[in-house]
Design a protein around this nucleic acid. Structure first.
Lengths: 119, 119
DNA sequence: CCGATGTGCAACTGTCATGTTGCACACCAC
DNA sequence: GTGGTGTGCAACATGACAGTTGCACATCGG
């Protein structure tokens, strides 16, 4: 069960890449707090230009972390938890996998030590 | 409960930044499979040089995802699940938070619609 | 129709991370 | 000691990305 074998590898890849940027995480905080917001609105609360926000939102959209709706001449964005949830589960499974393997290694080491004692 | 308020913000930041790189994730797969490995050993299984692996391991070490032990003239690395587990929990909590807020927004919207119907 | 506001697109710059190569140094076995 | 193997350090090229600015286009209110 390696990382790349999992079917949602692409999804996880996108989410991790998106969340790696602190500005994007802050942006998501603002957005999740408002429920709905446009790029212009969000930019007013962040130390970056509107265009920077637009680009970040594009990345987040590709990653499936936000969705957009056109209302008249403005585009309202909102948060989408599914991809985040999937990635969280992936990560928890990976951590459990590491734990399992470490336990196995440890048992093997102990067995080898016991064998060495007997020799 | 915003993202940056959480006490392990630095830890999460490091882990996310580290896991954002596909090569590092592949490296971690190799390492978790072997239990123990040196930079040279890992580089033999990846399409990058030993020096590249060394740099990646440095990042992973800073993020708390691996630990190193000097044995003679070689440095053996192994995986460390704690930081990964913490980040997984952080992410699950964030997803739950988004869900909660979306539910609240939805209820407010329905209430507003009902009020508009009455008017 | 017309000014105002919001959005989309494109070019440009600076910066940072990845990956490489070359060399010096430390350690193990014989 | 000596050759081989493993590691550390430094300089360098390069590619990706964040962020900015400027301008064109669409849309709403009066």
């Amino acid at each position: 069960m390696t990382t790349t074998d999992r079917p949602d590898a692409d999804l996880v890849d996108g989410v991790l890449a998106a969340l790696a940027d602190p500005t994007r995480r802050e942006l998501l905080d603002v957005l999740s707090g408002r429920g709905q917001a446009t790029a212009t609105t969000i930019a007013a609360e962040l130390p970056v230009s509107r265009q920077a926000v637009v680009k970040h939102l594009a990345v987040l959209d590709t990653a499936g972390l936000v969705e957009s709706t056109k209302v008249g001449r403005e585009v309202r964005f909102s948060v989408r938890p599914e991809a985040l949830d999937t990635t969280a589960r992936w990560m928890a499974a990976l951590a459990a996998d590491w734990d399992r393997r470490l336990g196995r290694i440890k048992r093997l080491a102990e067995a080898a030590e016991a064998a060495a004692r007997d020799a």
